[in-house]
Amino acid sequence: MLFRQLFDRDTWTYTYLIADTDSKEAVLVDPVLEQVERDLQLIGELGLTLKYCLETHVHADHITGTGKLKELTHCLGIVPEKAQVNCADRHIKDEEVLKVGNIDIKAIASPGHTDCHFAYLVNQNHLLTGDALFIRGCGRTDFQSGNAGDLYDTITERFFRLSDDTLVYPGHDYRGHMVSTIGEEKEFNPRISHKKRDEFIELMNNLNLPHPHKMMEAVPANQLCGKI
C-alpha cells in the first residue's frame, strides 16, 4: 500500500493519497481545491489512476478539490450517506467497505463534529479521523448540526474500541503533529482522556471559538462538490 499525507498550509488541512501498488488504483481523501495541481502532479509521477475522491464530511474551512478532480480525471466523488451533496456520485454507508485495488477502506459513521461525519479505517490499521478526533484534540461541535454528546460517543465507543496500535491520521493539525495512535489519544488527549461524558459536553459547549473565516463560502461550495 502506498500512503501519503499531504498538507495545505492555509487551512491546516491534511489530504491523504492512498493507492494499491499492484493495480495502481488510488483514492484521495479530503482534497483541497487550491492543491489540485500538486495532487495531480504526484499522482502522475507515481503512475497512479485516481479512482475516487472521498470526503469525511461537508467542510466549513476549505473548498473541496473533488469537483475539479472529477473534471480532470473522471474519478468518482463519494460522500457520507447523510451529507447533503446531490452532485456526489455515491453516498457511502456506515460499515461499507470501499475497495481500491487490494486495499479495504471501511466507512465508520462518526457524528459529532457534524451530523454526517464519517471516518475511514484503511486496511484495519490506519484510521482517518477527519475532524472528529485530532492529535491531542478534537473537532468543534458548535455548528453544522454538531453535537458534543455524539462526538464523545463516537470517540469513546467507535474509535477507542479499536486496537491501541491503530494509527490515527487527523483531518487537520495546528501544532505540527502528523500521526498518533489510539492508545496515545486514550491516555493523553486533554479534551477527552479520562473525562466523563457530561464533563466533555460542558467543555465543548464553552469553547467560544470564532467561526472559520471561509465558512460562508466553503459550506455551500462543498454542497456543490467544490463549485464556487
Rank of each mutant, 00 (worst) to 15 (best):
Thr154Gly: 01
Thr114Val: 01
Gly65Tyr: 02
Ala83Met: 03
Glu185Pro: 08
Asn102Gly: 15
Ile155Arg: 11
Ile103Lys: 09
Leu203Lys: 14
His74Leu: 13
Ser193Ile: 00
Phe143Glu: 15
Ser180Lys: 03
Gly44Phe: 00
Met178Lys: 14
Gln84Lys: 13
Glu199Ala: 09
Thr56Pro: 04
Gly130Glu: 03
Phe118Ser: 02
Leu76Ala: 12
Pro212Leu: 04
Ile103Met: 03
Cys116Glu: 15
Arg90Asn: 01
Tyr174Ala: 04
Ile92Tyr: 08
Asn189Phe: 06
Asn86Asp: 14
Lys214Thr: 13
Ile192Thr: 03
Ala19Asn: 05
Val79Cys: 03
Leu48Cys: 06
Met216Thr: 12
Tyr52Asp: 07
Ala221Val: 04
Ser180Asn: 01
Phe200Ala: 09
Gly65Gln: 04
Leu98Ser: 02
His177Tyr: 15
Pro212Thr: 08
Thr141Gln: 13
Arg90Glu: 07
His177Leu: 09
Glu184His: 08
Cys87Ser: 12
Met204Val: 04
Asn147Tyr: 02
Asn189Glu: 02
Asn86Thr: 13
Val168Glu: 15
Ser145Trp: 15
Leu224Ile: 09
Asp104Arg: 15
Asn205Ala: 08
Asp39His: 05
Asn189His: 05
Gly112Leu: 02
Glu34Gln: 14
Ile182Glu: 09
Gln223Val: 02
Cys225Tyr: 07
Phe160Met: 06
Lys186Ile: 00
Asp89Gly: 12
Val179Leu: 13
Gly67Lys: 00
Ile43Lys: 04
Tyr120Phe: 14
Arg4Ile: 09
Phe143Arg: 15
Tyr52Val: 03
Tyr169Thr: 01
Thr166Val: 04
Ala119Glu: 02
Ser193Pro: 10
His62Pro: 01
Pro210Leu: 06
Leu46Gln: 07
Lys214Asn: 14
Phe118Pro: 03
Cys225Met: 13
Leu127Cys: 00
Val179Glu: 01
Gly101Glu: 05
His57Gln: 12
Gly226Ser: 11
Trp12Phe: 15
Cys138Met: 07
Ile182Arg: 10
Asp104Gln: 13
Glu202Leu: 10
Tyr152Leu: 08
Thr73Ile: 05
Leu207Lys: 05
Cys87Pro: 12
Gly101Thr: 05
